[in-house]
Write a protein that binds this DNA or RNA. Structure first.
Lengths: 197, 197
DNA sequence: TCACAATATGGAGATTGCCTCCGCTTTGTC
DNA sequence: GACAAAGCGGAGGCAATCTCCATATTGTGA
């Protein structure tokens, strides 16, 4: 659970690193239980530190969220690499969409947090989402080249779309099957085949 | 601005009705300015009443929101009736989707508030949304009969979809044109014509 | 017209969460 | 082991929600 955040600048003092790690660990659990809106003071308390300590390490909720999501976002990067190497670009895109939507449901409120962060390049969460946005861009581009997706579909639109579907399915308390149905609705479109102009 | 809320049970005392109306009027303005999360104490203050008065008339934020949206939701009912009488059921559905998405953007946070309320039948906001849900059901059914929409599309899914698009477009600060593009993406589907199986 | 019961009021204050500030403690280096 | 730098915690200011109840207003029946 020791992150490499310390290695970016001068290393943290040993006690500070210990606190940092503990906070991230507790935060991940709290977000999982209560959603991204979990009380930060409560997380600090459960991690055995004062609020001041939490806020020095993580000036904003998004910074803490980004740290807590670190592992999951790396996984997503791995998935993207795997799918880029897959045989069928169209199937790869379908799988990516589903995988991404599922990831966005790991914490309650996550689609909202990420959608907001993506609008603000200075947010640490936005930076952390790079594997996600880059993955969508690459996998979508390959699917387009293969002729599996309309050429005018933009990566930013697709990301917004996936996020909004994850949001809707969370709001409704959807099962995984219901999420898949909602996604299929969008990928296939509302029109019946006979009416496609 | 005198609502008929008073006529449902024993009529309100004259002063109470005055306060009720003033609160609703101020709330509509506050929601428009600050979104559905506007401070209720602040609304009470601006309406010249104490918080206790506001909370007696409107026990929850949703109750106040429902009252503030009363007029807009009636309008939506009118639109539904007009579209049910329109010539082209497919075009009517398209117009309904766009109109509904636009309505959901009248207050910041409205898609979220409504999506939550729709999950809870006891919410007054859920009741107030009846013109909306009924409109979707009818207009969708007609479009299906006309063969313009796949038979397996459910009204509840469509409502969720429209809500989530409104949510996404709000998050991104989309223009009306961007909202339309996003909607078109969904109604048409991601696939190019040549690949439809 | 007036008195009184029913109705309604408002604002103080309990609670919860966010975030900052700064005097004290811990660490690690010389 | 001493001292500067780094880090800590928690008190407390702020904002929002929502409740409670002593007080005030209304409208009705005599």
């Amino acid at each position: 659970m020791t992150t490499d955040a310390a290695t970016l600048k001068r290393p943290l003092r040993a006690d500070a690193q210990r606190n940092y790690d503990k906070i991230v660990q507790v935060a991940a659990q709290a977000f999982a239980e209560k959603g991204t809106g979990a009380s930060l003071d409560d997380i600090a308390c459960r991690a055995g530190v004062g609020p001041g300590t939490l806020y020095r390490h993580f000036p904003t909720r998004d910074a803490l969220l980004a740290a807590a999501l670190h592992g999951a976002l790396d996984e997503l990067g791995d998935t993207a690499r795997r799918l880029m190497a897959a045989d069928d670009p169209a199937a790869a895109l379908d799988e990516w969409i589903l995988e991404l939507a599922r990831h966005l449901r790991t914490y309650g409120g996550l689609p909202e947090s990420i959608a907001t962060a993506l609008q603000d390049p200075s947010s640490p969460l936005c930076t952390s989402c790079q594997p996600m946005t880059a993955g969508t861009a690459k996998i979508l581009a390959r699917a387009k080249e293969a002729g599996a997706v309309r050429a005018d579909v933009q990566a930013s639109d697709l990301n917004a779309l996936i996020g909004s579907l994850a949001w809707a399915s969370e709001r409704r308390g959807d099962s995984d099957a219901a999420l898949r149905r909602l996604i299929k609705l969008v990928t296939d479109g509302l029109r019946p085949l006979s009416v496609v102009e």
